[in-house]
Amino acid sequence: MKSTSNTKPDSITPDWGSLVSGKMDILVHWDISTKTGTDTLGSSYTYYEYQEERINIEVPNSDQTTIQTYINVNMDRYFRMVGALSPSDLQWKSDMEAAVLDLAGTSS
């Protein structure tokens, strides 16, 4: 779902209020781009446009630090669950492009 906000979203935002019986919702954000808009007075402002999906995940316990670590470790999986390229997929693509350019004798 396409969303907008005046603050840049994190890649994954836990919904701590949804934590019940070892499960909670997280918001996954991708394709984040910076946009410029104009208000009714003609002033420009920055906002962010992005894709967003809410998914329900199982978590190891109710400790926020442990849950955040668990989410960080499983980040690629959550991106794939919503059909987005994961951070490691994007890094792999960047690494492959750099390797091809290096083999071709050009630099990026």
Rank of each mutant, 00 (worst) to 15 (best):
I32G: 05
D63M: 07
T66Y: 09
E52R: 00
T106A: 07
D25Y: 07
E97N: 14
T7V: 12
L103N: 12
Q91G: 14
A99H: 14
T36F: 13
S107T: 15
I57T: 04
I67M: 05
I55Y: 07
K35R: 13
Y78F: 08
K2L: 13
G37W: 06
D31S: 15
G105E: 04
P87F: 08
S44I: 07
M75S: 03
Q68T: 06
V59A: 01
S43F: 01
S107M: 14
D95K: 05
R80W: 00
E52T: 00
D31E: 15
H29L: 12
S86M: 04
N6W: 11
S43Q: 09
L101S: 07
D31I: 12
S11F: 14
D76S: 06
D15P: 03
M81D: 01
S88Q: 12
S3A: 11
T69G: 02
S18A: 05
T13Y: 06
W30D: 07
R54K: 08
T40L: 15
V100Q: 11
T65Y: 13
D10S: 11
N74A: 13
K8P: 07
S5L: 08
I32H: 06
V82S: 07
R77C: 15
T38W: 05
S94I: 12
L27M: 15
E58P: 02
M75Q: 11
M24K: 06
D102A: 06
Y50E: 00
W92T: 15
K93Y: 07
S108W: 13
S62M: 09
T65H: 12
G17W: 08
W16S: 05
S43K: 03
G83Y: 02
M24S: 02
D10P: 01
V73T: 01
N61S: 15
D10A: 12
S86F: 02
G105H: 02
V20M: 14
V100E: 02
Q51M: 07
L101H: 03
L27Y: 14
T66P: 00
V28R: 00
I32K: 08
P60K: 06
L101P: 06
N6A: 12
Y47K: 12
E58K: 12
L85D: 08
P14D: 10
D25E: 13
I71R: 00
G42K: 00
D89I: 08
E53Y: 11
K23S: 00
W30R: 12
T66Q: 04
P9M: 04
K35D: 08
M81W: 13
L19V: 03
V100N: 11
S94N: 10
W92R: 15
I12K: 05
D10R: 02
K35E: 13
L103T: 03
T38I: 11
M75F: 07
D15Q: 05
T69N: 11
S18Y: 03
Q91M: 14
V100T: 10
R77V: 15
N74V: 06
D10H: 09
G83T: 06
T34C: 15
D25R: 05
M96Y: 08
T65C: 13
I26G: 00
T46W: 11
W30C: 10
Y47M: 12
Y78I: 08
